[in-house]
Amino acid sequence: MDTINSATCYTAKDYKSDVKPVWCPGCGDYAVLSAFTKAFADLGLEPHRIAVVSGIGCSSRIPAYTNCYGFHSIHGRGLAVAAGIKLARPDLTVVAAGGDGDGFSIGGNHFIHACRRNVDMTYVVMDNRVYGMTKGQPSPTTEADWDASAMAPPGGTGVSPFHPLGMALAAGANFIARAFAGDPNGTAELIAQAIRHPGFSFVAVMSPCVTYREEQREWKTLMRKSGMETATDPAQAARNLMEDDGYNLGVLYKGSRSPYSPYRPASAAISDLDAEFAL
């Protein structure tokens, strides 16, 4: 489990680096960064025992903005790198982070299998329904009729958006929550819960892109605490998620699967392997 150090008291700023973010003014990701550091402080985790791992995109810049160990990997592969770290180093707290394009498009296969594999780590996706870093292309969570960007075809793509939470449930994620960057404290609380929960925890943070999706400023009037009770039964969770309009915040599913732990302790010396080949 995660190391809780009660002897040292950390505050959120102990987890912040002095690297200045590349994000635009007003970007929701600033609040997510604050939520990360607040969650780590609330959990009392030592910064050098946390690994924050990401792919590529605006939100994937987050590891270097923390004062934790970090890996800013390649587009779509953050979850695989994170799983490798956690499986080799079960003593570390591993948090993977990224955006909707990174996680659901180029990294979609890893998302499915990370949910299925259930490694004890947390995946935070900052979903703004757009490719921001490449300046405004539709992403897998973009509405089918969105055409406000010069990069989108007139009338929109005509392709229905992906339902990440439903997908996570179907694929076997052990904890599913939705947070809103406009509520950093709520987001921090959900991230902390996700880290505490054993197995693969998925937190979708609705994080507005005020540059390419200005209408997302309205999210603050639409987002609400979910009226649904946290489901622990996947069938109930599935029904809830099918009725979900995308604005329900909170923990939507908490499972009880055991985390994947492939480590096998040594029972033989390396020289014992030679016996297999010696005549």
Binding site: F71, R77, A83, G84, R264
Partner: peptide, 26 residues
């Protein structure tokens, strides 16, 4: 399994090499 360690069958080669990079970073 004998000498102590982790073997993972990954979902594809992209995952397998990236998991290896992660483990090595660790």
């Amino acid at each position: 399994a004998k000498v102590g360690g982790v073997f993972v069958q990954a979902e594809d080669e992209l995952a397998s090499i990236n998991m290896c990079v992660g483990a090595s970073y660790g």
